[in-house]
Design a protein around this nucleic acid. Structure first.
Lengths: 188, 188
DNA sequence: TTTGCATTTGACTGAATAGTCAATTAGCTT
DNA sequence: AAGCTAATTGACTATTCAGTCAAATGCAAA
């Protein structure tokens, strides 16, 4: 996952993966029928790791808008680290894989779509809670989550391509704009 | 450009490109030092083509919010065509290339960033005109263009990965939400 | 200790890869 | 027609690629 995330699916060879994993090629193909299948498995494993952090960020114990704020902060921190360590913004691995392979590899596309939907579920639930507290405007929370996530993904990608974190810094206030925030104080 | 857009940079070989162009490999390398350089040239050529259409969509003769609407419509139509013809949503070629190669190929990253900035200039000017007519809220129009474009890119990518046009259908109203539209009638 | 299966090994294949090059051809200028 | 340069040709290299396989090893249960 690290190799593919840092570079790209197309530029990473099975030999590269085996070298990094300290494994022979025969072992690789003993467990995975193809590079594509390994990638799907790596995507799922990445989700399993990430989930722990996300469950904490989106804990229902936290005020709903703080959850969204925490999510933006964590994304910014993550990319700050990549930039500091490697000089490059890596973006979101699911999006990167999806952008590269959605037209070519249906299994990878489906897995990316599946995981993105899981991400959106966190947003949806935070939005629903925020609505019930009267913090933001009404409307289908799933649609709202979808558009907030679009903005998030887009900002992430823009940051990657411009190699500049600023699109990620304004994310918090742009989320609220998109959610018809009820009082300006929520922005504080 | 077509090959790379439909597939990906990594999956298209110089041989593929030569075959499609009806050209020998020697000729290719007579004009371009590498596949990467050809890609940069193809990106610029793609912009030159696209520009004609964009100049029409964003004509200052049109009401500013109609320009944004026209842009959303044209993006939707474009992806509808790809879906109908090839069964897949192709997304935006600059974003696709940028997502795949920004960490690996600096020349391509810079060209993608340059062209994305040109796109944003259309948005910025429409937003500034809309502000001066009192149609939308004030605020730095460049920042507003950046966030509208983030949403646009994100929706495009989400459509590609989900292989479903619906994120593109709500784009128009989500633009306005992001721009603090002054009257609901602007949504009509 | 023996049986049996899961895992590991590393050499191997055949195809594809980016890029080279000397020789040929085309087309323009004088 | 002669001369010159730009463009074209296609065979060539050396490397890398995904994927295979028969043989060897590890390991756990009986």
């Amino acid at each position: 996952m690290e190799l593919i995330w840092e570079n790209s699916y197309g530029s990473v060879s099975v030999d590269d993966i085996c070298r990094k994993a300290g494994v022979n090629k025969g072992s690789f193909y003993h467990f995975f029928p193809s590079k594509s299948d390994l990638t799907v498995a790596a995507m799922e494993a990445d989700w399993t790791n990430k989930r722990v952090e996300l469950d904490a960020i989106f804990s229902p114990q936290l005020p709903p808008l703080s959850r969204l704020e925490g999510y933006c902060d964590s994304a910014l921190r993550c990319q700050e680290n990549k930039l500091a360590a490697h000089g490059k913004i890596w973006g979101c691995p699911m999006i990167t894989l999806g952008a590269e392979l959605s037209t070519q590899d249906e299994k990878i596309r489906i897995k990316a779509a599946e995981i993105l939907r899981r991400y959106m579920r966190y947003l949806e639930s935070a939005i629903r809670d925020a609505q019930s507290e009267g913090l933001i405007g009404d409307g289908n929370p799933r649609d709202a989550a979808e558009r907030v996530f679009s903005l998030f993904q887009g900002a992430m990608l823009q940051a990657k391509i411009l190699n500049d974190l600023s699109p990620l810094r304004d994310l918090k206030s742009n989320f609220l704009r998109l959610l018809n925030v009820q009082s300006e104080s929520a922005l504080a």
